[in-house]
Design a protein around this nucleic acid. Structure first.
Length: 791
DNA sequence: GCCGTAGGACTACCA
DNA sequence: ACTGGTAGTCCTACGGCG
């Protein structure tokens, strides 16, 4: 028998002759599927006496089929922290599991684990590892240990479609797809269309039908393993589906010529393409935004591409596509189409290493990772690690348990109220990985709590055993330790090499995961939710930061501000050496895993008051670093829901103060901008305010400006749904602000008064106020309306 | 019915 | 659909006035 090797990707199942086979998706020389006989099962907490009755169960399904267990055995497992003998009930098919589970009037476990994942966990199968196996016919007899494989063996392929859209929004029943563009990891690139264009990369066919068919054959020729697209889930693929149906041809996306399949995964419903891994980069980029990896006002391909690469993509206005097509000179359009496919490829290639690392670490297949939330990633990792240690995976909470958890939130972090003002010589310290280090230091885990033995007592009164270590601290410790090693390797590695990229992605993946553990402990739908644990984490956090504050005061520093894990001190005549000495002293008394770090020295900082009160505003400050860099948090200028003009002006004012300490300069800047706004010359792009619709448009109680703009735009054919980011401008027409709001594309003009009094001035007034009471008196002296008069 | 305002709805930020 | 803490805008219902 020949021994073969292949890169393992994913697993599900197939039924043959009444038997369940795990189906492994692998890539050797080609992409193939391997089959391996494996029975699904679940556990029941029953006595020996019940075994016979369970083995004799026979449940009639609606189709009249009898469902019986295949066999049973007692196994020793760890259930909720205690050793326990459980009955493992094997079934003939995965779909029998929930049926039999329903019929057993005793506690059952692990009956809702998808079969593919069950199999992967039991076998210790890791995505992107190389397995070696012996094959007999269509099935494998055995397969062996795995080692690191190379995800870049997979061929990545990106594509984009252009659609005819004379009415703005294209109608799939009438408007054809006019162009496909693609590129792949081997350097292929091209455009397929059905109007003449003499360019080497453009392939011209007769009609739309031929074009679709040609596109499917290109995917096969290029042997695409991974399909990158942008918003393909909601737009391109469903549109292709409609067009293919209309044209009477199969939507041959899969390796076997099958169309896509809708997979339900909670709120996201990704489209699965058989034999390939479809990665829609739009949700991926949103996830990156969530983890703080990227920062952008909206998640259009154009915007994300320029924030990620620093390059700007020249684009045709989407509304112009049909005009260009009708003009019969499609040269610009083909360029544009190709650049979209290339930009998608570039984003895909940047995301790929991080996604594959997340997949390998969490044991979650790449396709799932691409659409996963951080909660699912943590859960996947914990489920694998629990299984490897003989622990029963805790069940998902019931709906009522979820509501109860939601109604009962836990106390969070401490934030110190800063006194507004302009300060000099500031040092900032923060705890490195505060919550993860607390979880590890105090062995915080749902199953180390309130048990016999030597324990750590949390400030909330909960007791956590010192040993043995709980699953969560073990897994988290491991993530942190691995990251330390990788950072060391990273220092030795040469930048811009493949190795460096891989290590850097791995480090990042480990960080994302480690930072998600605390959230997962307090997440209402978590399998490992524990109120006392989550509460203790934050309580210990508050304790440590407040102890640091006391010590700073005792050492003669003035504590300016604190938030969760950070400490802002005024040197107040002391030297930097004093500050570092203080830091060392603090660290001497902290648990081993915890460390307070120097974040930086700052020569100047601005804290402002709240809008309505004299009190200082929390989570809002600007610092000027030694290196001349400005660090800004919380100010309107970091928010997408403020106009560009207000944000730019606020930035310039802050910099004038931080760098030059000049109020005259700051005032001059504001005067200039107000003048420009009044003149009506400010481009509308600079006036757009971006706000996301977090609900379906018809689910709102009140009509906000963004909703009003979205509803008006929808009447003109724009897609506006939950998740859409609405870029709108306040125009002159209308009474209320909502009435005046129109999306950027449809805004004919802007209302200077709104932008002066509701955008620019509010953004800068609080800062100018800190420059001195004189200006404050001047602007506030008895005047409520028309703050603009001053400028 | 008009006006001004408190409280609520809502979003995006910090950590 | 990982957590809580926070600022801020705009809308809307409400009470006072007449």
């Amino acid at each position: 028998m020949q021994r073969r090797r292949a890169l393992f990707l994913d697993a599900d199942y197939a039924i043959r002759g009444g038997q369940t086979y795990a189906r492994l998706f692998v890539k050797g020389k080609k992409s193939t599927r391997l089959h391996y006989l494996y029975d699904p099962y679940f556990y029941a907490d029953v006595n020996e006496g019940e075994r016979g009755a369970i083995e004799n169960l026979s449940i009639k399904t609606r189709e009249g089929q009898a469902v019986r267990p295949k066999r049973t055995e007692f196994v020793e497992k760890i259930l909720f922290g205690d050793r326990k003998r459980l009955l493992r009930i094997y079934c003939h098919e995965p779909r029998h599991v929930p049926i039999l589970r329903e019929a057993i009037p005793f506690p059952c476990y692990e009956s809702e684990i998808p079969f593919g994942r069950r199999f992967m966990m039991d076998m210790g199968l890791v995505p992107f590892s190389v397995i070696s196996y012996e094959r007999e016919g269509r099935t494998i007899k055995k397969f062996l240990g795995s080692r690191d494989g190379n995800p870049f063996m997979l061929r990545r392929f990106s594509f984009d479609t252009e659609v005819y859209n004379p009415l703005g929004a294209p109608r799939p029943s009438k408007d054809p797809i006019i162009m496909f563009s693609y590129s792949d990891s081997e350097g292929a690139r091209g455009v397929v269309t059905f109007k003449k264009d003499h360019k080497p990369f453009v392939e011209v066919v007769e009609n739309e039908k031929q074009m679709l068919e040609r596109f499917f054959s290109i995917m096969d020729e290029r042997d695409a393993d991974v399909l990158f697209g942008y918003n393909t889930t909601n737009f391109d693929l469903p549109y292709m589906y409609e067009r293919a149906k209309k044209l009477g041809i199969p939507l041959a996306l899969g390796r076997d010529g099958s169309p896509y399949r809708l997979v339900r995964k909670g709120l996201i419903n990704p489209l699965e393409i058989r034999g390939r891994i479809h990665i829609d980069l739009y949700p991926v980029m949103k996830f990156f935004g969530f983890t703080g990896l990227i920062r952008t006002d909206d998640y259009t391909l154009k915007n994300v591409y320029s924030t990620v690469t620093g390059k700007t993509a020249t684009k045709i206005d989407r509304l112009d596509i049909w005009r260009q097509w009708d003009s019969n000179d499609i040269s610009t359009l083909t360029d544009y189409a190709l650049s979209d496919a290339l930009a998608t490829m570039e984003l895909g290639e940047m995301a790929f290493p991080l996604l594959t690392e997340l997949s390998t670490i969490t044991r979650m297949p790449l396709f799932d990772v691409a659409y996963a939330t951080s909660g699912q990633l943590v859960e996947s990792l914990l489920m694998s690690e629990a299984t490897a240690r003989g622990m029963v995976i805790p069940p998902k909470p019931s709906g009522s348990a979820v509501s109860a958890r939601l109604e009962n939130p836990i106390q969070g972090a401490y934030v110190k109220l800063p006194a507004p003002g302009i300060y000099e010589n500031i040092v900032v310290f923060d705890f490195r990985g505060l919550y993860p280090s607390i979880i590890c230091s105090y062995n915080i885990d749902p199953f180390t709590i309130d048990r016999e033995g030597d324990f750590n007592k949390s400030p909330t009164g909960a007791n956590f055993l010192k040993s043995p270590k709980g699953l969560i601290p073990i897994v988290l410790d491991n993530l942190i330790d691995r990251r330390v090693l990788i950072k060391r390797e990273l220092k030795a590695a040469k930048k811009d090499t493949e190795e460096y990229k891989k290590l850097s992605a791995r480090s990042h993946a480990l960080k994302i995961l480690a930072n998600s553990f605390y959230g997962y402990l307090g997440y209402a739908r978590s399998r490992w939710y524990n109120r006392k644990c989550a509460e203790s984490v934050t309580a210990w956090g508050r304790m440590h930061i407040m102890e640091a504050e006391e010590k700073a005061n005792a050492a003669g520093f003035k504590v300016l501000y604190m938030d969760t894990d950070s400490l802002f001190l005024l040197l107040d005549g002391k030297t930097r050496e004093d500050a570092l000495h203080f830091l060392a002293n603090i660290n001497k008394e902290l648990p081993e895993k915890m460390e307070l770090e120097l974040e930086g020295f700052y020569s100047r900082g601005v804290f402002v008051s709240k809008k309505a009160e004299e009190k200082g505003a929390k989570k809002k400050y600007a610092l000027l670093g030694d290196d001349g860099r400005v660090k800004i948090r919380g100010f309107e200028l970091v928010r997408r829901d403020w106009s560009g003009v207000a944000k730019d002006t606020q930035r310039r004012v802050l910099e004038a103060i931080l760098r030059d300490g000049s109020k005259d300069k700051a005032v001059a800047i504001v005067r200039e901008v107000v003048e420009q706004l009044r003149s009506g010359k400010v481009p509308l792009d600079n006036l757009a305010i971006y706000t996301q619709l977090k609900k379906e448009p018809d689910k709102y109680d009140i009509v906000s400006p963004e909703l009003s703009a979205a509803l008006k735009a929808r009447k003109k054919g724009k897609t506006m749904e939950r998740g859409s980011i609405v870029g709108y401008v306040i125009t002159k027409k209308g009474k209320s602000i909502s009435e005046k709001a129109e999306i950027l594309e449809f805004a004919p003009d802007y209302d200077p008064d709104y932008y002066i009094n509701h955008q620019v001035l509010p953004a800068v007034m609080k800062i100018l106020k800190e420059l001195g009471a004189d200006e404050y008196e001047l602007t506030h002296g008895g005047r409520q309306k028309g703050m603009g008069d001053f400028f």
